[in-house]
């Protein structure tokens, strides 16, 4: 009896779906799974980029940094007529992201960006099936050449470099010689940044104390805020932190008049009076270079690394917060040292 019910349910649903889908089908967007064979490079057509991101386009951190870069490249190239951008955000579930990556490839996008290391496996599978489409992923260094793939770009950010510079600034600005770090999970980009930050502080002021805490999460805004509170109570007069959770911590810094150093995106808007400087990920150069390469017929093979030297990492000061000249000079010296290799940013 139950079997029959199930059959019936399936049948009815199929009918309903068919009824709904049929009349409207012609209006549907380009059908998925269309052959991706068409060559991308006709100049009159817009260049088409699709991006799949683990968090929101407005996270003021990892995802937003890349999305904003795409938008600014788009503006530079002359709007949607020249560069089309499609996005899928909050793809924290990797299976969903894998579906998105494959669909975008099937729809004939010229470049599909998988903006999260966890998407790597899925993206490699898709890249094998769509050799004419270009893919990019980060944080990563593997362009798949070992597997015989020629259509993958990889990108990463040397977060430790800007972390080091932020550390130098923090050490010199701190009067209490106590500095607090609000971290998410002790891994990946956040770990790089924090390791560099600690080294920067220690090289500048060996007797300063860097207190580090982790919330075990990327989005626990409330706990990140309380962590900032605890750091302040423990005597910190400069704070920094990483991931989208820090928006709560910046608010606490603002309320207590404690200085903040940002990373990933420019966080000045959240604390115009307390945000001293941000390490900003400037992906525009990377994006533009990838577009140029693809248009020249080179679909992958390059691993990009955002560094201070190549302008991918920018230390953006907040003009509303006065930074003494000697601090800026020390920061500039640190940047120069990192660029010429005389300073190592990791233990």
């Amino acid at each position: 009896m139950y079997r029959r019910l199930i059959l019936m349910a399936t049948f009815v649903l199929a009918l309903a779906l068919a009824a709904c889908a049929a009349p409207a089908a012609p209006a549907a967007a380009p059908a998925a799974d269309a052959p991706a064979a068409e060559a991308p490079a006709e100049t009159s057509d817009p260049f088409r980029i699709a991006i799949v991101m683990p968090s929101s386009t407005t996270d003021l951190a990892w995802s937003q940094a890349m999305y904003d870069a795409l938008k600014s490249v788009q503006a530079e190239m002359g709007g949607e007529a020249s560069l089309e951008i499609a996005y899928s955000e909050n793809m924290f579930q990797v299976t969903d992201a894998a579906a998105a990556i494959r669909d975008y490839a099937a729809e004939g996008f010229d470049l599909v960006i998988a903006h999260g290391t966890q998407y790597g496996n899925s993206m490699f599978e898709v890249a094998t099936d769509f050799p004419e489409t270009s893919f990019a992923w980060g944080t990563a260094v593997d362009t798949g050449t070992e597997q015989g793939l020629e259509n993958i770009f990889a990108y990463e950010a040397a977060a430790d470099e800007g972390g080091y510079v932020n550390g130098v600034i923090a050490a010199l600005l701190s009067e209490a010689n106590v500095i607090g770090v609000v971290g998410p999970v002790e891994a990946g980009d956040a770990k790089l940044y924090i390791d560099g930050f600690k080294k920067g502080v220690m090289d500048t002021k060996p007797d300063a104390v860097v207190n580090v805490s982790f919330t075990g999460n990327f989005g626990d805004t409330a706990l990140a805020a309380e962590a900032a509170n605890v750091h302040i109570q423990a005597g910190a007069d400069i704070l920094t932190g990483s991931a989208q959770q820090v928006v709560g911590a910046v608010g606490v810094a603002k309320e207590n008049g404690v200085k903040w150093l940002g990373t990933q995106s420019d966080q000045t808007s959240l604390g115009p009076d307390v945000v001293v400087a941000n390490q900003v990920y400037e992906w525009t150069g990377t994006v533009k270079d990838m577009i140029a390469k693809i248009q020249a017929g080179e679909l992958g093979g390059t691993a990009y690394n955002l560094t201070l030297a190549n302008g991918g990492l920018v230390i953006a000061y907040n003009s509303a917060v006065a930074v003494p000249d000697d601090v800026k000079a020390a920061a500039d010296a640190a940047i120069a040292g990192i660029e010429d290799g005389s300073i190592t940013t990791m233990e």
Partner: peptide
């Protein structure tokens, strides 16, 4: 109490399962 008391920001899914 989070968005205009303790944190003074709004962010998607800011409660994070609270």
């Amino acid at each position: 109490s989070l968005s205009i008391g303790l944190l003074n920001v709004f962010q998607e899914n800011m409660t994070n399962g609270l």
